Amino acid sequence: MSAILRSYGANVSVEEIVVDDPMDNEVLVRTVACGVCHSDLHFKQGSMPHFPVPAVLGHEAAGVVEKVGSGITDLKPGDHVIACNAIACGTCKQCLSGAPHLCMNRAPARRPRGAPPRLSQDGSKLLAFSDLGALSQYMLLPRGALVPIDKDIPLDRAALIGCAVLTGVGAALNTAKVAPGSRVAVFGCGGVGSSIVQGARIAGARQIIAVDIVQSKLESARRFGATDTVHASTANPVEAIMELTGDGVDYAFDAVGSTRLLSQCYESLAQRGMAVLVGAIPAGQKLSIDARGLLRERKVTGSFMGSNRFQVDMPYYLDLYRQGRLDLDAMVSNRLPLDRVEEAFAAFETGEAMRTVITFEGA
């Protein structure tokens, strides 16, 4: 069974599909858990039209290897794995420049032209969102999309590392390179924002200001390491941050994907501060800022999936979890079966959930 989006703005339907056998360098994975991400919601709403429909949703998953194709010697049935859509070719300009998360070649993520489809239904090809299609009982993926993990890590927690944690912690540690003793503001404290808060704490920030309109998320942000909170529906966040810091923060992160919030991030900066867009922003959005602030050497940049090298980053983040320095347990706000996936999307839209994880048999 798989969660299929057939048209933008419509409800997801849970249907039977056919998953092919693995070819060379492919792995069949039995999905155990898949987090529901804001990017899935954007795609569902039609804000990411460059991904065509119909497609199987989901891209934040962990599971168990069922079968491997020829040429694979480092994975075997029964191994636990995390999936990631940052599948790098290793030969393009970005890969060779040390930015594999920005790989310019998606060919390694897909089957060659003329090959049978990985996913199909009634003889027609189905696409996999982000080349993963993880809201499904089975995923058929290239070897480069997977990282093996030890079996002591609960898979419903490990799944979060495939997107939310990789994106948020990575935005703090890899993209912004938050400096020890710095001041940080995080706008939006869902799964990605909470991960940014944790990344800033791990980096040694002395002040971490969480900004949100949901009180429960602000309370959770304190657990993850926020030193201060701002309820943005009752206070002007820029004014509140200036009052808390005196001259602004060194780093401000938009974890939602909103030009309004990104503008507030920029306005919250101290001299030489950096505003970082982390959330998935709908296509066509334009940012308006007071350009004079650039003379104070303020910067605006983006972070795609935490500037990750996921084969390196994921094991590191799992070690942080084992050490108690990265809290994955509290990030899971709810667990639902696949046939209740629409409830997960509804909770996202209302702001109720930090991270809802869809669980399959064996979670």
Rank of each mutant, 00 (worst) to 15 (best):
D327P: 04
N308E: 13
Q311V: 14
G306H: 10
S303E: 06
G324F: 06
G306Q: 07
G306M: 08
D327Q: 05
G306V: 04
F304D: 06
P315V: 09
F304W: 15
D313R: 03
Q311E: 14
G324W: 03
M305W: 15
D327F: 01
P315N: 12
L318H: 03
G324H: 04
Y321F: 10
P315A: 04
R325F: 02
V312Y: 07
R298G: 04
Q323M: 00
S307R: 08
F310D: 04
P315I: 11
V312R: 13
M314E: 11
D319E: 15
F310W: 08
Y321S: 05
Y321K: 00
R325M: 11
Y316E: 11
S307C: 12
Y316H: 09
L318V: 07
M314G: 05
T301R: 14
S303W: 08
Y317V: 03
V312L: 08
S307Y: 10
S307E: 11
P315S: 06
R309P: 02
Q323T: 00
G324R: 04
Q311H: 14
P315W: 06
G302S: 11
Y316G: 02
D327W: 02
L320K: 08
M305V: 11
L326R: 01
K299F: 10
L326P: 01
R309Y: 12
D327Y: 04
D313Y: 01
V300F: 02
M305L: 15
F310K: 07
Q323K: 12
M314N: 11
T301E: 13
F304Y: 13
R325I: 02
R298C: 08
D319T: 10
T301I: 08
R325V: 00
T301G: 15
V312Q: 13
Y321C: 09
M305K: 12
D313M: 04
M305D: 12
R309G: 01
L326D: 00
Q311Y: 13
D319N: 15
T301L: 13
M305I: 14
L326V: 07
P315R: 09
V300D: 01
F310I: 13
Y321T: 02
R309N: 15
Y317C: 01
F310R: 05
R322I: 06
Y316C: 09
N308D: 14
Y317F: 15
R325S: 11
R298I: 09
V312E: 07
D327K: 09
V300P: 00
M314K: 06
V312C: 05
N308M: 15
Q311R: 14
V312N: 12
V300W: 02
R298P: 02
K299Y: 13
Y321H: 06
V300A: 03
R325P: 01
F304C: 03
Y321I: 00
D327N: 15
S307K: 06
Y321W: 05
L320Y: 03
Y317M: 09
S307N: 14
D313C: 02
Y317L: 07
G302I: 05
S303Q: 07
S303D: 11
